[in-house]
Design a protein around this nucleic acid. Structure first.
Length: 481
DNA sequence: TGAAATGTTGGGGCG
DNA sequence: ACGCCCCAACATTTC
């Protein structure tokens, strides 16, 4: 009788896929049966950053991964508890010889993983999988981290990029789990969340399909498309717009390497200057994602406050009622309200909409960007601590690459520019559906405005002056020091 | 990955 | 024909 080899554990975290998964593939290369594990950590479940929508999307991702694994005669082992304890017990239970996982760069995860690395008598193998270039790889000539996007991008582009990991997966690569006690995949309610809206498919196959179809067409019009306010990014027939791949990147259902190399192929096939520029613009977005992850690793204080401490003196307004009006999409500015309602109804917004509502909260209402950050983290299915924090600090003017404080979006002109016909507004604000195009951005100017829609909660030009003044005071104080 | 204020120019109406 | 004004269109500066 051949004694079966000791298994190895692959701990899935933010890498819910079988293809191009560096740690998983390394585990498979050992030729030991791989135990595919996912752990529900109570610390994450009860965090105020978690929201029902993203949790529901995660559950869909796990269900898809489980069914994918069943094709290989295995399944996803679900456990609940503190990862430190769950892993210890599982090692004892299965006599596993090693643990594999991919690095998660968020501050919470880094801290958690540090404790785990040294904890057991078996080796823990960690891989840089979630980014093309991990933190530390893109540094200035003085070996310092970049604090501005453009030079970071220029340096990033000069590096060689890792190839896609290809492996043909067989059933005998995985542990059958027959003799291991597993929890069933929980439902939302069991995890302490209330039911939520319908969400897109979270399977690896669908992510691949969406990537491929984006590369067929929309990527060549991305320069314009990325600014388009799209009500239904997933609709079959729609103008070229966002790639809508962020939720898949968020959970590693799609590999960034695969996305990058697909874009390179698209670049090679671009038929015009404009088309290749569009492809390049999309790759820039991948680089923004890498940039903000690097920033959070090198400057972990951003998670708790301003990237630039000189803005710590800003006297943000405390205005719970106004915050609530913003959250509920009742500001009286149609484009802002449409976006905020989209967020709470589908857990996603196009990038342009995120900038508009972020500018409105921080510059028009002059409410702390952390309130917006929290709200976004609660609702976004693609909510990622690094990217979300980076985006909010950018909008507020306190971050890296901060837009100068005087760049304040005008919610009306943004609306006219990026939703000229008011299609986006009308989709999300049914109460404005009968408003003529002429007034769709400014319904309060109608002879008789709709009764069920509020007037603007602030006068934009007054709000603009107020914010400029607040920043200016700070500059004066700074000069007096 | 702005917007508003201010400055400049040039055509047309008009006395 | 000329000077003057108005103002749209564009450019530059400022926050």
């Amino acid at each position: 009788m051949i004694s079966s080899p000791r298994p190895v554990i692959h701990w899935f975290r933010r890498d819910l896929r079988l293809s191009d998964n560096l740690a998983l593939h390394a585990a498979i290369y050992t030729d030991a049966p791989v135990i595919p594990l996912f752990i529900f950590d109570p610390a994450i479940l009860k965090s105020d950053r978690s929201g029902a929508a993203r949790m529901a999307f995660l559950l869909k991702g796990l269900a898809a991964l489980d069914s994918h694994l069943r094709h290989y005669g295995s399944r996803l082992l679900i456990r609940r508890g503190k990862p430190f304890d769950v892993l210890r017990e599982l090692i004892l239970e299965t006599d596993a010889s090693a643990i594999y996982f991919n690095r998660d760069y968020s501050p919470f995860a880094v801290k958690r993983d540090e404790a785990i690395i040294q904890a057991y008598s078996i080796p823990v193998h960690i891989y840089d999988d979630a980014l093309l270039l991990p933190p530390g790889k893109v540094m200035t000539a003085e070996d310092k981290p970049y604090t501005v996007y453009t030079p970071f991008k220029n340096n990033w582009r000069k590096h060689n990029k890792p190839e896609i990991s290809k492996i043909s997966i067989r059933s005998d690569h995985f542990h059958t789990l027959e003799d291991i006690a597993a929890h069933d995949l929980p439902i939302l309610g069991e995890l302490g969340f209330s039911d939520t809206f319908d969400l897109p498919d979270a399977s690896e196959n669908v992510a691949q399909h969406n990537l491929a179809s984006f590369m067929e067409r929309d990527i060549y019009a991305y320069s314009e498309g990325r600014n388009r306010l799209t009500a239904q990014p997933f609709a079959e027939k729609r103008p070229a717009g966002s790639s809508y791949l962020s939720p898949y990147f968020r959970f590693g259902i799609l590999s960034p390497r695969q996305a990058y190399w697909s874009a390179r192929d698209a670049f090679a096939q671009a038929g015009s200057e404009q088309a290749s520029e569009s492809v390049s613009t999309w790759v820039d977005e991948l680089i923004w994602r890498e940039f903000y992850m690097h920033i959070m690793v090198h400057f972990p204080h951003v998670d708790k406050g301003n990237f630039r401490p000189q803005y710590d003196g800003l006297q943000w307004r405390y205005a719970p009622d106004e915050l609530q009006a913003w959250q509920e999409g009742q500001t009286g500015y149609p484009v802002v309200d449409a976006a905020m309602r989209q967020l709470c109804q589908v857990g996603w917004m196009p990038n342009r909409a995120r900038m508009i509502v972020a500018s409105f909260l921080t510059k028009d209402l002059f409410i702390h960007w952390q309130e917006g950050e929290r709200h976004f983290m609660h609702w976004l299915i693609d909510g990622d601590p690094a990217a979300n924090n980076g985006g909010w600090q950018w909008a507020a003017g306190t971050g890296t690459d901060a837009q100068p404080y005087f760049r304040i979006f005008n919610p009306v002109s943004q609306s006219q520019k990026f939703d000229p016909q008011g299609d986006y507004i009308c989709y999300w604000l049914p109460e404005l559906r009968d408003v003529p195009v002429k007034f769709i951005h400014v319904p309060w100017q109608m002879p008789s405005p709709p009764k069920n829609y509020p007037p603007p909660m602030v006068d934009h030009s007054m709000a603009r002056e107020r914010t400029l003044a607040a920043f200016k005071v700070l500059k004066i104080e700074e000069n007096n020091l």
